[in-house]
Write a protein that binds this DNA or RNA. Structure first.
Length: 488
RNA sequence: GGCCCCGUCGUCUAGCGGCCUAGGACUCUGGCUUCUCAAGUCAGCUACGAGGGUUCGAAUCCCUUCGGGGCUACCA
């Protein structure tokens, strides 16, 4: 439409309707909103669209706040932090919408519609049969006062419906270019329900104007509702030069090529958090869905994202969510973690799994053990499984590994190992390795792979474990020897 | 059905008329390394949906077609 005033500071909003846990698609939108605000030095507004009182719950609203906070997507205006354009919950702004609806009515931009749900459904059905574009037929556009009186006498309660003028709406989408909708395909739409509550179409437009939003970055599903939104701006008397700019983001799809939803794979961000994915990995991966830095780099920090992110580099085609790549990025991020941070992330997983209780000795052991598993995990959720052998009270060898050390040669390995290790002065992994290599590899001529495998199973209980000698050092001489003897 | 959006390796993408016998990453396959698993490293597989134009030249521009998706609510 018109060029936007370049001197005004960027204001973008993320405005979810919390009818469930925030999911991957929502968060990708939030991330782009946030990144764009930070990139431009603008303002990031967080608004809750809870006009659908049937489906939105306080729990979901709180969960949405928690999720954004956990991801590090901090907002400048919104719930908890407030701001000059609040309140930021639409349920607290009902009087504002009512005022505007009344104004539209008095201006003739909107009118009362008395059609019942059944009547409307009948019209739509007929339209479908006749192969005509379905939509409101304008029945109540020009009612006489007698007709109105008759409807009211029947006890009908009207909705407020916006009048869509003849013609068309053209606007420039920052991602898709110029888009035009003929108004004959954009029927008159409802602004206010019969019970007086506002609909999304009214609330979203009023709030974006009142909150001085300059850029609307949102899902592609809202593309076709944009003409209605512009119609409300017009009725509000807003100068087209002051309309926000729109950018409709491509979808994030599930494996079956349908828009990602609750029924289509793990979508809730809470699930990924509990599985041990880092916020930065989730954001990094999501940023790559529909956007790229332009060069071959893919591992970006949050800071780099805010520096590099532009709407121009967002492309228009949908992307399929691939957990494999998320895992790869998560593994990279975990490996890059300084020990202290890795420890901080790891602790909740260990305590929640019951691997440790949290004593000082346990914590010291965890800190010593983390370096040897840091490069072998993809999610934090794998930590308890790998370190369990260090803390477990009633140690036992896993069923599938037990049978691998029942042969005579394995027994020989264990016997010799106990003999040599018992006299070891310094229980350090270098010394342990040296003694065992001499005894088992050089003197007995065994294959390292075979000899150490038997010991690994005896000591850690599994044929898959962190490096053997480091594991033995951490476990301590007493327990290590005890377990090897028990395995014999 | 109508309207709108979209279409490069299996997946995410680079590409914006010649640098493309199409590059990177993930996945997968094989090798190296190796005390297992990882990590690291090397190599390989595989793509411009199709058909017409425009042009000296097209993944890049235009048209058609096919395919996918969204919307079509007193949901958002």
């Amino acid at each position: 439409m018109a060029a936007h005033n370049p001197t005004s500071a960027v204001r973008v909003r993320f405005a979810p309707s919390p009818t469930g846990e925030l999911h991957v698609g929502n968060i990708r939108t939030a991330l782009f909103d946030w990144a764009y605000a930070r990139h431009t030095g603008g303002t990031f507004i967080f608004r809750i669209e809870d006009t659908d009182t049937e489906r939105v719950t306080p729990e979901y609203i709180q969960a949405a706040l928690n999720t954004l906070t956990w991801l590090g997507l901090d907002w400048d205006e919104g719930p908890e932090v407030g701001g000059p354009n609040g309140p930021y919950l639409q349920s607290e702004r009902l009087h504002i919408y009512a005022e505007w609806a009344a104004k539209f009515l008095s201006q003739g931009d909107a009118y009362h519609c008395y059609c019942s749900a059944e009547e409307l459904e009948k019209v739509r059905e007929d339209q479908r049969k006749a192969n005509v574009a379905p939509g409101y037929n304008g029945h109540c556009r020009e009612l006489s006062s007698d007709q109105v009186a008759a409807y009211l006498a029947q006890g009908r309660k009207p909705v407020v419906r916006m009048r869509m003028p003849d013609g068309s709406t053209t606007f420039t989408d920052l991602i898709r270019g110029e888009v035009t909708f003929e108004h004959k395909f954009v029927p008159d739409f409802v602004l206010v329900r019969a019970d007086g509550s506002p609909l999304y179409t009214l609330a979203v437009a009023v709030d974006d104007i009142l909150m001085k939003v300059t850029h609307v970055l949102r899902g592609e599903d809202l593309l076709s509702s944009t003409p209605r939104q512009l119609r409300v701006y017009d009725a509000m008397g807003v100068n087209p030069n002051d309309y926000p700019l729109f950018a409709h983001l491509p979808f994030v799809m599930g494996q079956d090529n349908a828009k990602l939803s609750k029924r289509n794979g793990e979508t809730s961000i809470a699930w990924y958090r509990d599985a041990g994915f880092l916020p930065e990995a989730i954001c990094n991966y999501l940023a790559l869905l529909g956007w790229s830095p332009g060069d071959d780099r893919e591992n970006v920090t949050m800071k780099e994202l805010t520096e590099l992110f532009t709407v121009e580099r967002v492309h228009s085609s949908p992307a399929k969510f691939d957990i494999k790549k998320l895992e790869a990025i998560n593994g990279d991020k975990i490996r890059a973690l300084p020990l202290e941070e890795f420890f901080t992330w790891a602790m909740p997983f260990l305590t929640r799994a019951g691997t440790i209780q949290g004593s000082d000795t346990e914590i010291a052991l965890v800190k010593a053990a983390l370096p040897i598993i840091q490069e072998r995990i993809v999610t934090l959720g794998e930590i308890p499984g790998l370190l369990n052998f260090l803390f477990v009270k009633d140690f036992a060898i896993a069923e599938d590994s037990r049978e691998k050390i029942l042969d005579e040669q394995s027994k020989q390995v264990l016997t010799v190992s106990v003999q040599r290790l018992s006299g070891l002065g310094e229980w350090k992994h270098e010394a342990i390795e040296a003694v065992l290599r001499t005894a088992l590899i050089e003197e007995l001529g065994l294959k390292p792979r075979f000899a150490f495998s038997a010991l690994r199973i005896a000591v850690t209980g599994s044929h898959i474990s962190p490096p053997l000698f480091e594991s033995m050092e951490l476990l301590g001489a007493e327990k290590s020897l005890e377990r090897i003897r028990a395995a014999m």
